[in-house]
């Protein structure tokens, strides 16, 4: 990883510290700065409220030319998060062809928060959950809350 990328990550971390978005906590390891651990509270008013989700952000060596890779370490019932042990998500600005260097991690985190409030059905990675969200909202909410209780407490 180049010095420029490290500098940029440091800078972004500084910015994140200066104004951490509400309901987030960032664990940063000086030794391995390409891997951030984020603790995110389920946004109030969403089905995930009350849950605590652990996310992992991994910066590629080509950062900021390549997007960071975001994955949920806590299982979450969400159409945009893959329902496996990877918990990967990839949409919007996280997509390699959409990503632009001026984008910042804060923006990524905000995007994730907003997705927890309102999933993006059209860009779902888990079509079954997306379908449920579309057609049977009650069932979806029940399942999501169930999972929050089970995994994210």
């Amino acid at each position: 990883m180049s010095a420029g990328a490290k500098k940029r990550i440091m800078k972004e971390y500084g910015e994140c510290m200066a104004e951490t978005p509400a309901g987030m906590k960032i664990n940063f390891d000086e030794q391995n700065m390409t891997k951030w651990e984020v603790l995110m509270d389920g946004p109030d008013g969403s089905v995930y409220a009350g849950g605590h989700f652990k996310l992992e952000i991994i910066f590629p060596n080509e950062y900021p030319f390549k997007p960071p890779v975001v994955s949920f370490r806590t299982k979450i019932y969400h159409p945009n998060v893959s329902n496996d042990d990877k918990g990967s998500m990839c949409l919007g600005l996280l997509r390699p062809d959409e990503w632009k260097p001026p984008n910042k991690v804060v923006a990524v985190l905000r995007l994730i928060q907003s997705l927890m409030v309102e999933p993006n059905i059209d860009d779902a990675i888990e079509p079954s959950i997306a379908n449920e969200y579309k057609e049977n909202r009650k069932e979806f909410e029940k399942n999501a809350k169930d999972w929050v209780k089970r995994y994210a407490k």
């Binding site: 919007g92 600005l93 959409e98 923006a107 993006n120 059209d122 860009d123």
Partner: peptide, 21 residues
């Protein structure tokens, strides 16, 4: 500005809509 916009990918997805399952 899909970047930090509160409603992020609405317009984007209108076009980026994936093929149906």
């Amino acid at each position: 500005e899909i970047v930090a916009a509160p409603e992020p990918t609405r317009q984007n997805t209108a076009e980026e809509c994936p093929p149906e399952p």
